[in-house]
Design a protein around this nucleic acid. Structure first.
Lengths: 245, 245
DNA sequence: CGTGCTTTTGAAAATCATCAAGTATAGTGG
DNA sequence: CCACTATACTTGATGATTTTCAAAAGCACG
């Protein structure tokens, strides 16, 4: 009944896909100049992704790259018994699928209605030959993600639950600051569920919930609704996230 | 065997640095053809790094890239109170310093006597303009490290101590298999201290030690010496590492 | 043959997970 | 529009894995 599988009528291939893409300036596509955008658009297949839909499955043959142009997705890995680690959240501008291997190393699922651009891996590879600037941009993106991954390892390996949650909230704030939708100072939205946050921070839902409640009671944050957080004591949160406290 | 060892310890500048580099085929430098090696060698500054010496410090201005040509280094991040997370171990062939930022995101210290090649960041950048193959190789390297980082996040966030140690030992074995010094099947060496392993796995030294002892008692491994491990029951270890147990 | 470091082992303590249940929220259908 | 159901979130009590604290054993080095 609620089937979202109806093929959308829009997404006119090529026409205005890349030229008018709101996420372009935030993505690797910025490396392609206006005049060459048509070549990129010819490869790009815009796809709507309803919330909850998995569009990359770990282990599947990696035939495509993806670029999130709208909404938010979670990237995750699973253990056979169902334990899950969310390795990151991808919002507008994020490029997905970088890997040398022939199969995806993670799964990706939309946490809110999203829009992605799909590129054939081999065809984009060829395009890269003509646009070294884009390849360099990809290297920059990968380098940045590597730095972020190391930071996350520090969080997962050495920080307490409190420190993890504080780090997460501050990261969300920083992420919102560069995002397309400017939000009020210290106001952040959490489109992902508590379970996703827990799996991202290496904790349980209960611990995340309890920790947030405690931060609220201590007036470090406000929580008008579960998906809406206001950072009340930025300095204290920063100290917490850094491990001082 | 003796011929392999015929390598000068004090690699004279330029002369034969890159041409005779034992680590070249395992590193990004493989992307530079023989005839162009001189240009690379002109940039490469070979440096011996004694065990325990820190040669990259987190937060310092990132002026150089490094390529480990011999020995092993640990990469790590610190919290102000001294908590440490080892984000990886770098052995011969590993390229270090990828980052867009102007300062290093991690520190690096040799865990055993090592040899590295130092490149000026800006000059190597310019060299990359002439050798797109090397840039592509760098992207591949970064992509692979990203996949490894995600795997490590899964380990840190969701695996038990036992599973972490098993995963580590198997990863070491796989790493030794591709390394320059072929070792007997199932025999691995651990050049790093228990503390480093603990900081890599997000555990304490005591837990690592206890866990290894237990694996030994259960005949999954043998431990002739603390730095020498023999994988006795490969299948059981694999199952453990995968989370089945 | 000490001396200092690393590794190992033991006992107690703590953080976080698990189990359990209540509350809030959203989406559905009457 | 409202009640109903399913889901998400929160809160509480208990428990377990891992940490912390403490100390012995093993090794390298001078």
């Amino acid at each position: 009944m609620t089937s979202m599988r109806a093929r959308p009528s829009f997404a006119p291939r090529g026409a205005e896909s890349c030229t008018s893409c709101g996420a372009r300036r935030a993505s690797v596509c910025i490396a392609i100049e206006e005049k060459d955008l048509e070549r990129l658009a010819a490869l790009a297949v815009p796809l709507p992704v309803p919330a909850g839909r998995t569009f990359i499955t770990e282990g599947d043959p990696a035939e495509h790259f993806f670029n999130v142009t709208h909404g938010t997705a979670k990237l995750f890995k699973l253990l056979p018994d169902g334990r899950r680690q969310v390795t990151g959240f991808a919002s507008a501008g994020t490029f997905l699928g970088l890997a040398v291997s022939s199969s995806y190393a993670f799964s990706a699922e939309a946490v809110e209605p999203a829009q992605v651009c799909r590129f054939s891996r081999t065809r984009l590879r060829h395009l890269l030959d003509d646009f070294p600037a884009m390849e360099r941009r990809l290297l920059d993106v990968a380098s940045n993600e590597l730095v972020a991954a190391q930071e996350q390892m520090l969080l997962l390996g050495r920080k307490t639950a409190r420190e993890r949650v504080a780090s997460f909230l501050l990261a969300r704030e920083a992420c919102a600051a560069v995002g397309p939708v400017p939000s009020a100072r210290g106001h952040i939205s959490l489109p992902m569920a508590r379970t996703d946050i827990a799996d991202y921070l290496g904790l349980t839902v209960e611990t995340v919930s309890r920790t947030m409640t405690r931060l609220r009671i201590e007036r470090l944050i406000d929580m008008p609704s579960p998906t809406e957080i206001i950072l009340r004591n930025h300095d204290a949160l920063t100290a917490l996230a850094a491990g001082l406290s």
